[in-house]
Every structure is written in C-alpha cells, then in structure tokens.
Design a protein around this nucleic acid. Structure first.
Lengths: 256, 256
DNA sequence: CGCGAGCTTGAGGCGATTCAACTGTCGTGG
DNA sequence: CCACGACAGTTGAATCGCCTCAAGCTCGCG
C-alpha cells in the first residue's frame, strides 16, 4: 500500500521515498538509463528538516547548494521596502531550488518554508552531471525540462497578476496547483492538499487577505471549489477551467 | 550561404553599427578575447527590417533562430482567449531573442515589433560558441549574463504587477527603462526615447489606457517626469526613485 | 480635406482595499 | 477543568483606486 505523506512522516531509510520522488520527477520528462537511475538512488541522503517560516536557501554568498523538496510546501518571496511581500512561486514536493550551474536569479532566490519542510541535497547529482554530461544525458535533459516548466509557471504568474480578476486568478492558481500535484500523485478524485493560509494566497495572487477570503467563500457557495482545512476539493472542474481563462462574467450560466 | 549584395547600404558599410552594438552589450558583462571579437565582427550581416506590429519570431515549429535587436522597440506579448494582451517584456536595441540552445520558453516566446525594428541573426555566433565553448568562454559567459539580466527583469515585473499601485508601477518601469537605455548610451541628461503608446504601456503595466494617461499627466503636472512625443525626460530622479519602491502616499512631502 | 491613430478629459460604477470586530479552533498552563 | 492567547478564518461598512463608457481633441498623412 502506498502511503502518501503530506507534510510529516519523518521516516524514510535506504532507497528512500525521497529518491523515488526525484526519480519520478525526472522521468516525467525523459527516459533514464540504468546508470542514471543508479546515480539518483545513490544520493540516499537523510532529509533535512526545516521549520515553517524559516529560510531554506540562506547562503546568499556562495552559490547555494541545489536541494529537492521531498515534503511540505515552500515559496520564493520578494520583500518590498515597505514590508509587503510578493510571492514569486510556490514549491511543492518534487521541486528543486538552488544553483544548478547557471546561477539563474530565480533559482537563487531565497526559499522560505510555508509548512514544515523536508529537503535533500542534490549537489552530488548535479555535480556529477555537470562533470560528465555524456554519462548522464537523460538527467541533464530532465533538469533542463524542469527549468523550462518553472519558467512557464513564472510567465503564467505574470499573466495572472497582470490582467486577471480576483476570481480568475484564484481559479487559475488552483488549476495550476491541481496539475502540479496530480503529476506527483497527490490528487485523489478532485481533492488535493494545499496547506496555504489565505494570507499566503493573498501574497501570491496580489490581493488582500479579506478579498481572498471572499472569493474562497464565493467558490464554496457556488459549488465550484471547496477549500477547507488545508484540503482543496474541485467540485466543478469544467466551470473552473472556463472561469480561469475566459473573460469573467462573474456569474455565468447561473441566471437566465 | 547566399549573401545578399550590399548595394543598399546607406553609410557605415563593413563592420556595421550592428556588430558594434553587440560587442558593446557583450562587453558589459565580461572581457572578450581577440578571437571572440573577431567572431562577433565576422557576423557582418545586413539587418533585416520588420514593420511595426508584425511578428519577428514567427517560426513556432523549429527553434527560431536567435536574433539581436539593433534598432527599434519590440515586445513579448501573451494573448488571452478573451482578446486582452499582457506584455511580458519589452526589447530595446541590444536585446536578444530566440533560442540560444536551451529552448527556454521565455526566449522562445513570440516577439512583436512595436516600432519599425531592425534585427540581425546571431545564429552563426551562437552556433560557434555552442560547438567550441572553449574557444569562446567570454561570449558564453556574456550570453549567460544577459539571460540572467532578462530573468531579473521578469521577476521585477512580477513584483510590479503583483503589489504596486499604478503610480509605483509607472515609476518603476520608467526607472528600469532608464537604466537599460543608459547602458546602451541612449540617455542624454535625463532624457531617453520611449516610442511606446500609452496603450502599450497599459498592456505592459496591467492597467487601462485611460488610467495610464492620468498617471502620465499627473507625473507631468508634478514635475516628476515628462513624457512627450516618444521622449521621456526625468525631471526629479530622486523623487521618482523614492516613489518606485516605497509605499505610495500618493503625494508626500508636499504638504505639512 | 477627411480620416485615423494617439492623447485627453469627464462621469459613473464596480472591484478591491482598509479598518474593525467577531468567531472558531487549537495548544498551553494555571 | 477552564482560562488564556495565538492564529486562521469570517463578516460588515466605508472608502478609494482603477475601470468602462463616452466624448472631444490634436496631430500627421494620404
């Protein structure tokens, strides 16, 4: 029986769930050779724990070592001089952070745990791939693909913030999370965990806490989506998708 | 293979202004060896003309060849199903577009000319650097640095759209443009060209045309910035910078 | 001359914000 | 056992930033 761990579960020995998760994520993009699989499994590191609210990617000086999130949620915040925060992206299990050789500012952006988070270092894997690219072409391709996926999410984020209404932003975000969580097996018939406070959602969507709350209650009242106790249940996927990228009639097909 | 005849070249033939601009841009980041300089100068291509409003990066199928903007302004638009546009970034002379080997979605995003634009292909240079990285380490580094700069601008854009007021967005953008244009020598005591319509500014900043107009007139009235006839003149740099990243009191230090 | 593209301005309305209070649920300690 | 504070969520009221609609203006250009 496959136990799904959301946040807790500090066990994981030998060929841990951590490396399985990494394998799974890499294989989304491409096929790995036996040598490559072996490299991944040899990582067998003990996950490191990070308390909620703490910084995971602190060493601003040198290039922070690349890490993989194996449990819990995190984000890349940007703090403005006046104290407000804009969250650039959220990280869920299977996501990467830190330098993978190109010193990209986004990858280097500080990462902060939103829940208790467990990570493992993938520095050894990245290093091996960098030194002998020819031995690990699959991993190299997979890492590049993950980079591309992250970048696409960034661009989507710009569109959300730039020209969507609050309802659209929320639905758009929920659909993105639905898809990302589905790809790591966290969605069970329309439900998935989302341990984000409404405050965090507000910082993510560029809205006020109060207004996020109103949107969420609206969605619940309309039997679109129910968010309750850190779990999202999508009640009407079709209508949500419709709302996410069409103009927002604010309430369509309901009246008339 | 087929070289176009140089018959139409009005003045500066041979080592054109185009390659000078590219050299200048690359040297911002690092030092180039004589061999590298030679490679850049050997590009000596005839710039290609693109009419305003046309797509510069059309071939969606294969990887579009990398090109350098040598004149005019362009942008990377994102069109929503309902017809609205969000502009992800603007390109000014010295900026790159198209695939530089990593197939990044941002670089691959379609580019549309906002004014008449001239570009040259840098495919040969990129190809050469890719095949013999060891011969051209400086160019490789410079290209990576340009990538990073672009990405930082993207992140800034998210912050602008996510949690800044209209006045802040405008001032933030103007300062970014000021800096970028200064680095290619287009700023002369506080003035620089900005051939963007207020409509385009609106799509860029996630605002309505009307409101952009009001902000612009406000700035003019307050002797902050004057935008007139495609030329921006920053009248009070300090106050503009203050406005750009502090909280917006809408009018501070004026009363009391 | 008339046309269109870009800019300007007014009026009215809605979406989102802010301020503020109140609820419910935890975990802690008296 | 209940009191307590901390925290997340909920709700109301008033306000404002920004949007939409709608004119009118000013150019440059065929």
């Amino acid at each position: 029986m496959l136990k799904v761990m959301y946040t807790g579960d500090p066990r994981g020995s030998g060929r841990s769930l951590s490396t399985e998760l990494l394998l799974h994520r890499l294989r989304k993009a491409t096929v790995l050779s036996p040598i490559e699989v072996e490299l991944v499994l040899s990582l067998g590191e003990q996950p490191k724990q990070h308390a909620a609210g703490t910084s995971i990617c602190p060493q601003e000086d040198g290039s922070p070592h690349p890490r993989l999130v194996v449990g819990g949620w995190a984000c890349r915040p940007r703090i403005l001089p006046d104290g407000r925060r804009q969250i650039l992206s959220v990280l869920i299990p299977g996501d990467l952070m830190g330098d993978r050789g190109e010193r990209r500012p986004f990858a280097l952006n500080p990462v902060v745990a939103l829940t208790p988070v467990r990570t493992i270092s993938i520095a050894r894997m990245v290093q091996a791939v960098r030194l002998n690219p020819h031995d690990y072409p699959g991993i190299a391709r997979a890492l590049a693909a993950i980079d591309r996926t992250e970048e696409m999410a960034l661009l989507d984020h710009i569109v959300r913030l730039g020209c969507q209404s609050a309802r659209q932003r929320m639905s758009h975000l929920l659909l993105e999370l639905h898809q990302r969580l589905a790809s790591i097996g966290f969605v069970h018939n329309g439900s998935f965990p989302m341990p984000l406070t409404q405050d965090t959602l507000a910082e993510l969507l560029g809205l006020s806490l109060v207004h996020v709350n109103r949107i969420v209650s609206q969605f619940r009242r309309e039997n679109l989506v129910s968010i309750r106790g850190g779990v999202v249940t999508i009640d009407d996927f079709a209508r949500l998708a419709l709302l996410a990228d069409r103009a927002d009639p604010t309430r369509d097909a309901a009246s008339s």
